[in-house]
Design a binder for these strands. Structure first.
Ligand SMILES: [Mn+2]
Ligand SMILES: [Mn+2]
Ligand SMILES: [Zn+2]
Ligand SMILES: [Zn+2]
Lengths: 152, 152
DNA sequence: TCCTATTTAGTAATAATTCGTATTTACACA
DNA sequence: TGTGTAAATACGAATTATTACTAAATAGGA
């Protein structure tokens, strides 16, 4: 899927991005990014650690976690799902979706028929069968927008 | 928003649902459901615990967690966000969404322009500003479907 | 070359959730 | 209306992913 040339290219542009963001293009960061860019399986931190360790035997798990966070903050990689927050529960059984404020954690319901009856694209059928659609709109709630405007 | 009568009705139908599912309608379960049905704020386990405790002072946090899981398994309530245990990372920066197998955790990419440019409904604009759309199709991957067919 | 951000190692802290187990309780049925 | 029993609870302890200390070593990059 992803050729060696493409991966090398990605790492190269990462080095440029580091300069832009003012962070160092360390060996560890480059190898962690290379590992992630080489797979489509969306690995977890432990998996990345185990694989990068083959090439950089002294790397620490701590560095992997720290680096993944740094890369995410700089929007070089992303995280699947909404981990690292506690589980939130919902007794509303009507079909609906959520707006989530990424500053304060507010969760609001909204209803949308178009999204509700959305047909899964054919490429998904190849992967498996879908039994539910989870949709989350992420942004900043009114209150947090105001709060943010005041502090800058 | 939700009237006392409606909440009582919900608890009453929960008792019937318990009979259906073959689980016991305990005081704890009823109060936990009542608490969730009384709010639109999608509380976490600790919050439910704190509130239910006012009415059932001897309830344990463990019971709250266990009950929320039971209610979720019986599809009486739902969980906002992902229930995954470890964070998963992604170096694919192209706009895309995910198919997630709830049996084995497989995560696959898919692309869909209609979803991509989807306009947030007006009720969402009242809540705040949206900066990203997170979509996850949940189901069972090919391999897990086969595995499941064999064991039943 | 040299300054300093970053990594390492190794341990400890957190924090959400789950487990072990003795005890209690819901409820089917006698 | 009592009673037996599987299911559920309470409580503390355990687990697990992740983050936080530290001090000393390393290595980017100007
Ligand atoms: Mn909701
Ligand atoms: Mn992806
Ligand atoms: Zn907010
Ligand atoms: Zn699967």
């Amino acid at each position: 899927m992803t050729s060696q040339v493409q991966i090398d290219q990605r790492v190269k542009s990462f080095i440029a991005a580091c300069r832009q963001h003012g962070i160092k293009a360390t060996q560890q960061r480059m190898e962690i990014l290379r590992e992630l860019a080489s797979t489509e399986e969306h690995p977890d931190a432990e998996t990345v650690f185990a694989r990068v360790r083959k090439r950089l035997p002294t790397i620490s798990l701590d560095t992997v976690y720290r680096t993944l966070r740094t890369l995410e903050e700089n929007e070089i990689i992303s995280r699947v799902g909404s981990m690292r927050e506690r589980a939130r529960f919902d007794a509303n059984t009507a079909p609906h979706h959520h707006f989530v404020c990424s500053d304060c954690g507010l969760i609001g319901d909204f209803y949308c028929d178009e999204l509700q009856g959305f047909p899964p694209p054919p490429e998904v059928a190849d992967m498996g069968s879908v039994d539910s659609v989870y949709i989350e709109l992420r942004g900043r709630c009114r209150a947090c927008q105001i709060k943010r405007d005041r502090t800058e």
